[in-house]
Amino acid sequence: MSAETITDALLKAAAPVVSAVDERIALEVLPQGSDYPAIAYQIVSDIGVQYLNEKVSESVARVQINPLAKDPGALLVLHAAVRGAMEGSHKTIAGFRILSCRFEAFGPPSKDSLTGVWTKPADYILIYE
């Protein structure tokens, strides 16, 4: 649940993201009737790591960001904005300290034949405490 809070806060605090999608940022599924461009994200995994000395603990999460747009070029703009929001380290947001957040990989682009909306997922590795 913490990775969700951090991801939501990072995306909504980034002016380039907000200017591109306004408030159309959602966990897993956008509300029905949403306009585009938009961003849906999901937490693929979020695992707590407890060290033997119990003084330090951290969590490692894999976050998938799925920008949605009417054309492939708009996806590139959204990915650049998201990457600027997500990547970084040693900052505190929503009460959590981010030790590291880095881009991991892109998935293949796809177009929904019914809506004409494009997406291309991107994975980030988030380490926080």
Score class of each variant (00 low, 15 high):
Val17Ser: 03
Ile125Thr: 02
Phe103Leu: 11
Thr115Val: 05
Lys111Asp: 03
Leu114Glu: 15
Lys111Phe: 01
Pro109Thr: 04
Ser100Arg: 15
Ile6Pro: 08
Leu114Ile: 09
Thr7Val: 05
Glu23Thr: 12
Ala38Gln: 00
Ala38Leu: 01
Leu11Asn: 09
Phe103Ile: 03
Lys91Pro: 01
Ser89Phe: 11
Leu75Lys: 00
Trp118Cys: 05
Ala14Pro: 05
Leu78Glu: 01
Asp112Tyr: 06
Ser100Phe: 10
Glu58Phe: 10
Tyr128His: 04
Leu78Tyr: 01
Gln42Thr: 09
Glu28Arg: 15
Ile127Lys: 15
Ala40Gln: 07
Leu78Pro: 02
Asn53Thr: 12
Arg62Ala: 08
Ala94Lys: 03
Pro37Leu: 02
Thr115Arg: 10
Ala74Phe: 01
Gln50Ile: 14
Asp46Arg: 10
Val63His: 07
Gly73Tyr: 11
Ile125Ser: 02
Ala13Lys: 09
Ala85Tyr: 04
Leu78Asn: 00
Ile127Leu: 11
Lys91Asp: 10
Asp46Lys: 11
Thr115Lys: 08
Thr92Asp: 13
Ile65Leu: 14
Leu99Glu: 13
Thr7Asp: 05
Ala3Ile: 03
Val21Leu: 06
Ala14Gly: 07
Lys91Tyr: 14
Phe96Leu: 05
Met86Thr: 04
Ser89Gln: 14
Gly33Pro: 03
Thr7Leu: 04
Ile98Arg: 11
Ala26Tyr: 12
Pro16Ser: 10
Ser113Asp: 15
Tyr41Ala: 00
Arg62Asn: 11
Ser45Trp: 07
Asn53Pro: 03
Val77Phe: 05
Val60Tyr: 03
Glu104Trp: 09
Gln32Thr: 13
Glu58Arg: 13
Pro31Asp: 08
Gly116Lys: 09
Ala122Val: 00
Ala94Tyr: 08
Leu30His: 06
Ala80Thr: 10
Pro109Gly: 10
Ile65Trp: 06
Ala61Ser: 11
Ala69Phe: 04
Pro67Ser: 08
Arg97Glu: 14
Thr119Asn: 15
Pro108Asp: 14
Ile39Phe: 06
Met1Asn: 13
Glu54Lys: 14
Leu126Thr: 02
Val18Met: 03
Phe106Ile: 02
Glu54Tyr: 10
Glu58Gly: 08
Val17Ile: 07
Ala81Ser: 08
Tyr124Cys: 01
Glu58Tyr: 12
Leu76Asn: 13
Ala94Asp: 12
Leu76Trp: 04
Asp35His: 10
Ala105Phe: 04
Gln50Pro: 06
Lys12Asn: 13
Val77Glu: 11
